[in-house]
Design a protein around this nucleic acid. Structure first.
Lengths: 208, 208
DNA sequence: TTATATCTGTTAATTAAATAACAAAGTTCA
DNA sequence: TGAACTTTGTTATTTAATTAACAGATATAA
């Protein structure tokens, strides 16, 4: 009898709850029910309760959830309490946009390291982040104990970069290159293919 | 007895097959098996066959799939044959990166219209796309018969923009604002919350 | 105080998705 | 030719995820 694990879909919904609770908290709302929270993020109340139940009992029957308390728990669950070290590889248009993206800052996630293959870009700064040479990548990861790597480089070099990240001892990779890359089992990989979202729309428009 | 519909997960995998087939095609590969294709995109062979089976019979038993032919079918299925008209709202860092993103161009998807609320940006160009005033948005959509809208604006104004897109007669919306927005049933909505991917990594690193 | 309404956490039922199994069709090679 | 492999498309089975149902707690108001 193995323990009941959280579905991957639950993990994808947690950030939405977190975001909503952040907003409610700044608005001064103190209590929220699974029904209200669900409506705000487009998920049934029963799904909200189920999702949270994988991690503990955070609410009070007949009352609801204390916003600030649930927010705190979610921050813990999502690993937002810790300060993560993140390196971005490939400072093109997308890479720069990611460095400047306010959404990450609001979560306390800052991209403080960046490397690029273009010598022209090396030693320049983007939003206060100094761009280092690609040749230094492995060393930087090891020395600075960087845990998360973001690949925002062309598909052709994505695997090569992934290998370097792994060699440096990276623990997790967020890959924006539209390509399947292979990493060791112990390295967590999330692919973010921007085309998929857009094609999702053309697909539905085409069939209707 | 209703007809067997394709799962949403299948629709998400189709772009990966398409991308892989494009590559194989340019490499001059003529035939590919579900096993090979699956390995290249990280999906079991049986899943590849199942996914394709929702749309027809594209292979030959004992042989495999003709790359160019399957590619053609997939382009059709994914709605990449048609020329779509796309408007981007919010030409900030992310918006500019999206306009310049090569991945869309490779699919024949071009963002040819853009609007921004900042008067300083209006009438300037980004990668050849002239930025129009926000006040013109609704009119542009109607006049140019634009089908797809991309929201790359701050969360606070996302719903307002969505309403304008809908009022103009948009058929589908791709929302990058980290916020739940409501649109009429007949408008297709895809949310692309960049934070979700990154939090997915911190979550897994935190629990291990 | 007591009935009524609210809301959570959890178990049960249902629905969706992935995987396995296999017949049908095609290829290769002795 | 015919036996041994390949490989697809489809049906059957298993696993995963969602939804429904409801007991246990709490609040509210008569």
């Amino acid at each position: 009898m193995t323990k009941n694990m959280e579905p991957t879909t639950t993990v994808q919904r947690l950030p939405m709850y977190h975001r909503c609770l952040q907003k409610l908290n700044t608005e001064g709302v103190e209590i929220v029910s699974s029904k209200e929270l669900g409506e705000k993020v487009g998920v049934p109340a029963t799904q909200v309760r189920k999702d949270l139940s994988y991690y503990g009992e955070f609410g009070q029957r007949g009352v609801g959830y204390q916003v600030s308390l649930l927010l705190k728990h979610l921050r813990k669950i999502l690993g937002l309490e810790k300060e993560w070290k993140i390196v971005l590889v490939g400072v093109g248009h997308l890479g720069q946009a990611l460095i400047k993206y306010q959404g990450f800052r609001n979560l306390g996630l800052n991209i403080d390291y960046a490397v690029d293959i273009d010598p022209q870009k090396v030693s320049t700064q983007v939003a206060g982040v100094e761009i280092k040479a690609m040749s230094e990548l492995e060393q930087i990861i090891t020395k600075e104990e960087i845990e998360i790597g973001i690949i925002a480089a062309p598909a052709q070099v994505a695997q090569e970069i992934a290998d370097k990240l792994v060699a440096g001892g990276i623990k997790a990779i967020w890959n924006f290159a539209p390509r399947y890359i292979e990493v060791p089992y112990e390295v967590k990989l999330v692919n973010e293919d921007l085309s998929v979202g857009l094609i999702g729309l053309t697909y539905h428009l085409a069939e209707s």
